[in-house]
Design a protein around this nucleic acid. Structure first.
Lengths: 140, 140
DNA sequence: TCCGCCGGTTAGACAGAGTCCAATACTGGC
DNA sequence: GCCAGTATTGGACTCTGTCTAACCGGCGGA
């Protein structure tokens, strides 16, 4: 794991390795808070500030992606292959959609002087029986 | 404007009408805070709580849409025709993309027991010269 | 060995968006 | 005009994320 960080130009401190371990061993979507909890679960030793610093660093170095989907919290995604998401507006859970099958056609040209930074597709879903969507996210 | 609210099953109180006026007269994207400011620009007449209550109500009644694009604040969109967005990650500005030309192909079937609630496409852009963004998402 | 540098970490204060609550004001139907 | 139910309100509160200033520790140089 330390090597993986080194390969991405990140000096592998103890804390960073712990955080990377949480992110990459279980290939899931995490909030900063969940990572803070997971890392400190056994016996605690990473601060909130470091978690935020480290996540920001990992995003910069493209080890993870930041997902803006839930109005209340940012989610970090250790899967950096191109993909999109199903978002269950009731439970708040995310499911990956591999991008290689997906094709988007008919997008207009970018505004002048701009270049694309990425295309995100979010398919919002809800359980069949659920009355309707009023408020997103009801975690757990 | 009162009629427009009544037509959507909303009793048109003064506050709601004021808020609706801000949203629909200028056809732009607004944050809750901007609306609070706009409505109270002349002299204070609507409280923060009411702005949030009303926006939530309007979303429920489908007079406006909620856009989750910026990590720090929700944006409300008075344009309810199907459309997507360019998002300038540097300036934060949003531009509409009419949906009628856009076609998405190859999406996998929904997870079992789920129905789609909508598909959002966000094309993140940045100015040509801008040194790259530390911010959101980097697919493709 | 000792020293000083410097990147990394930290606690806790802080900021901003949004929610909650209990009291009060208003609206609409009669 | 009265009343019941609905809407509004200020203010306290929560939560996520940021900032700051102190501190820690590894490493190179003398």
């Amino acid at each position: 794991m330390a090597d993986r960080l080194r390969a991405n130009d990140i000096s592998p401190t103890h804390q960073r390795v712990e955080i990377a371990r949480v992110l990459f061993e279980r290939q899931e979507h995490f909030t900063a808070d969940q990572i803070l909890g997971s890392v400190n679960a056994r016996h605690a030793e990473v601060s909130k500030a470091t978690v935020y610093n480290t996540l920001k660093l990992f995003v910069e170095k493209k080890l993870i992606r930041e997902l803006i989907i839930d109005p209340t919290r940012v989610v970090y995604d250790p899967n950096t292959t191109p993909h999109h998401h199903f978002y269950d507006t009731v439970s708040g859970s995310l499911t990956d959609i591999p991008a290689d099958q997906v094709r988007v056609m008919g997008l207009p040209p970018l505004p002048p002087g701009m270049i694309a930074d990425g295309v995100d597709i979010i398919v919002r879903t809800r359980p069949l029986n659920e009355p309707a969507m009023s408020g997103p996210t009801q975690p757990e």
